[in-house]
Design a protein around this nucleic acid. Structure first.
Length: 803
DNA sequence: AGCACGCCGACT
DNA sequence: GTCGGCGTGCTC
């Protein structure tokens, strides 16, 4: 058993398999499946994952593993297997699957260097190189490139005077601090204390400290607490009374915060009947998927908490997924408050190092619960007792890069392997989920009432066309304006929600209708006020803001669309006395600013919170009594079969922000299409009716949940080439699938060109096609193996964005 | 992905 | 005759 199968860190068709290596004797007992290793691969050294240990290999001329990168496996057996599942189900390279399961800090970085050969002295090299190798024996390849030294270095390398070496960086990246601890017994310390001369008062003080606190203490703290210098400690270390050592510490992002301990709350009858089946599933180690369908404010979180409590008591572990934007301090507090330091938190606001530390806590089994965004589904627990996905309908659970997985599917796969339940919670379940619950694939648990029977807020839908007809050209309806004023007088708070997606501010000429487009992509440029320029969201192209129309030279060229800044400006005009906090990508870019702004609002430092998507969730402040949605229908007309569903969900979520506490809430939804069922039914908050209506639409148009989808996108610099390639691919797919499947295309992608590459796609709608994955794999094999054609083919199984 | 190997055009 | 262009194919 001295051969390791290794998946190497080279994302390419030809290397998407394992390579066998000999394990050197010194590592024989150490190297295990799931560890990262450094291996020679051709002329360089790269990172790889050991997937298997075996006794024999087909391949004869095996090379040796250079060294392990971990002391213990970073992927356990279950995760290694999950990697295979991910690879097969999302059609990605194996290496991508493994990388997706680990914190970014564990991803290898490579460095190429030129090193002086051991038997060579600097003066034996050409004079030109004397300076660069003066008192060091390596230089980086980058430096050599910059200084134009590559040719001469290569010449010396061929003579054997220099060597090109490849380093794999990013081994253990733990934060270590210097600690001091006593090396002798307390009695010895006391003896020394008495033996020390009078003038060694400082040393005595240190000894006295350790007599009282014999545990290791961080050097920095010791020095500060006793007001002594490092020299004092050093003297005692030299006399071998104390020892210095480096110990791993965690960068704890929540270090300076205290969490108020909470106890389980008594459950309402509804909650009680919902939690019973979950607890039974935990008790019997049964894999079941529950859809916890509960209106906003119905107390889903308490069910999560008490289920987790039960899991922990049974010695098992829990994963809680929360959408990134809902992963607020409030949310974290609820879990930390209940389970204290048994909780690890993983979200994008953490630095790479902090994320790695949280992950280490999981790996070292120091925590029992992980709360995190999508990728937390890969937490390296070994004895999962429950997986909870809150707001399960959120589209952010689908990863849009490789591997294009959906956290819900991964959760179900992991839960199956761990014989534990999955709880999907939502007030507005994804249609797919609710349909499965209807069919009995998932078990439906309902919480139809808000806690303490508090009423859902009253929702009023305002027809903005009427406003226009009545001569109101502002973006605030008369009703909303009136209520806003009222709230300010009553010192109550308002949340204004701007649905910006798809309608970011663009520049348009009012005379000729000219819209400023990106020269590389077929999409309009977005106006950025901060930098006072136009920017392309897809390729990063930047341009100045025109003050004259390039087409007709009109001066009436203005930015259009309602960005948050614009709303803020207008608010300043019509309600100058209102204090507004704006939350969007511009104001929350800096780390911690999101939290700070919410805190300020919570403390009542503003009357109005104005924002986009990011304020739709988790906001639970007692003083919010009015919610205004400025334009409900901005994303209704996107080329996306889920746009109605998304609109309904978003409006329902936003409405739920109002009146969650004692004060009753009011909601104003402004729209240009009040008759659209997703707007209308969001007004009455009638999910069931919406579900029925939307299901009819989906059935009629052959969309999920009636059909599965797979999207093939092909791009090339030449339009002709994309079209013909897409035609070929579509024809091939048609020939291989049954006639129950619908193959649409070739069709231009909704964004027909990105970065000067034309994009065409082919959409497959199917129910049961055993040959489909094989077919898709064949397509990928053919085009990925042939990069010189210039064609890029990407496949998204169950796409969420059809662009 | 790198990188080496290899087979054709313009230079010391 | 060689230096170097980047097409082709391999990496255990």
């Amino acid at each position: 058993m001295n051969i390791a199968s290794v998946v190497v860190d080279v994302p390419a068709k030809q290397t998407d398999r394992s390579f066998d290596y000999l394990i050197p004797d010194e590592w024989l007992e150490i190297i295990q499946p799931g560890m990262r290793v450094i291996v020679p691969f051709g002329p360089r050294k790269i990172q790889g994952f050991v997937t298997e240990i075996k006794a024999e290999s087909e391949f004869k001329k095996l090379r040796e593993i250079s060294e392990p990168m971990d002391l213990e496996p970073v992927l356990n057996e279950e995760l290694l297997e999950l990697g295979n599942w991910l690879t097969e189900n999302t059609l990605c390279f194996k290496i991508y699957a493994y990388q997706a399961m680990l914190p970014a800090a564990l991803k290898a970085k490579y460095e190429k260097k030129v090193m002086l050969s051991s038997d060579i002295k600097v003066h034996e090299l050409p004079a030109q190189l004397h300076e660069v190798f003066y008192n060091k024996d390596t230089i980086t390849w980058d430096e050599a490139l910059k200084k134009g030294l590559v040719p001469i270095l290569q010449k010396e390398a061929s003579k054997g005077n220099l060597e090109v070496i490849y380093l794999v960086k990013g081994k253990l990246n733990k934060k270590k601090l210097k600690f001091v601890s006593p090396l002798r017994s307390i009695a010895d310390l006391e003896a020394e204390l008495n033996a020390l001369p009078q003038r060694a008062e400082k040393q005595k003080e240190v000894l006295r400290y350790f007599v009282l606190n014999p545990e290791p203490v961080e050097l920095r703290h010791l020095l500060a607490d006793l007001n002594i210098s490092a020299a004092t400690v050093k003297a005692l270390v030299e006399k071998e009374f104390l020892a210095e050592q480096f110990m791993e510490v965690y960068r704890d992002p929540y270090e300076n915060r205290t969490f108020t301990r909470t106890e389980p709350l008594p459950l309402t009858d509804d909650q009680q009947s919902a939690i019973v089946p979950i607890l039974a599933s935990i008790e019997n180690k049964l894999h079941e998927v529950f859809l916890l369908y509960g209106v906003t404010g119905s107390g889903k979180t308490e069910i999560y908490l008490q289920s987790i409590q039960d899991v922990i008591e049974k010695g098992r572990e829990a994963i809680v997924l929360v959408p990134e934007i809902a992963l607020t301090p409030q949310m974290v507090n609820r879990f930390k408050g209940r389970f204290g330091n048994l909780v690890a938190v993983l979200h994008s606001g953490l630095s790479a190092g902090e994320k790695y530390d949280e992950w280490r806590k999981i790996q070292r089994k120091e925590v029992k619960v992980v709360v995190g965004a999508r990728s937390a589904i890969f937490a390296p627990f070994e004895n999962l007792g429950i997986i909870i996905i809150d707001e399960e309908h959120e589209t952010s659970y689908k990863q849009e890069e490789m591997p294009r997985y959906h956290a819900r599917e991964v959760a179900i796969e992991r839960a199956q392997k761990n014989n534990c339940p999955v709880v999907l919670g939502s007030a507005t379940p994804a249609l797919e989920s609710f349909a499965r619950a209807q069919k009995g694939v998932y078990k439906l648990l309902s919480l139809p009432n808000r806690m303490n029977k508090r009423a859902l807020p009253a929702v009023e839908i305002i027809d903005m066309r009427e406003e226009l007809r009545a001569g109101n050209r502002s973006m605030f309806s008369r009703k909303l304006f009136e209520l806003l004023k009222e709230r300010i007088e009553r010192k109550e708070q308002t949340v204004l929600f701007l649905n910006k997606r798809g309608h970011s501010s663009f520049v348009m000429c009012r005379d000729c209708g000219y819209v400023m487009n990106c020269p590389n992509c077929d999409i309009s440029l977005t106006y950025h006020k901060v930098k006072e320029q136009m920017k392309c969201h897809y390729c990063g192209y930047e341009s100045f803001v025109p003050n004259q129309c390039p087409e007709c030279s009109s001066d009436y060229i203005r930015y259009f669309g309602t960005g948050t800044q614009k709303v803020e400006d207008e608010l300043g005009k019509i309600l100058p006395e209102a204090k507004v906090i704006r939350m969007d990508v511009d104001t929350t870019g800096k780390k911690g600013s999101h939290e700070r702004l919410l805190k300020e609002f919570h403390e009542g430092k503003a009357d109005i919170l104005l924002g986009t998507q990011m304020i739709a969730k988790g906001l639970d402040f007692p003083n919010i009594t009015l919610v205004g949605v400025l334009s409900a229908d901005t994303m209704l007309h996107l080329p996306d079969f889920r746009s109605s569903e998304k609109t309904f969900q978003l409006l329902t979520q936003v409405s739920g922000r109002a009146g969650r506490h004692e004060l009753p809430g009011e909601v104003i939804i402004q729209t240009y299409t009040p008759e659209h069922y997703s707007v209308e039914l969001a007004g009455t908050q009638d999910y069931d009716l919406f579900y029925n209506r939307e299901m009819m639409m989906r059935k009629a148009h052959h969309y999920p949940p009636f059909y599965y989808l797979a999207l093939i996108t092909i791009s090339h610099e030449q339009l002709m080439n994309v079209v013909s390639a897409t035609e070929k691919i579509a024809a091939f797919v048609r020939s291989r699938l049954s006639n129950h499947a619908v193959v649409l295309g070739p069709a231009a992608s909704p964004i027909p060109r990105i970065n000067n590459r034309y994009r065409y796609h082919c959409l497959i709608k199917y129910k049961r096609e055993p040959e489909l994955f094989k077919t898709l794999k064949t397509i990928l094999d053919q085009y990925q193996a042939d990069p010189k054609s210039g064609l890029l083919v990407s496949i998204d199984v169950n796409p969420f964005i059809l662009m």
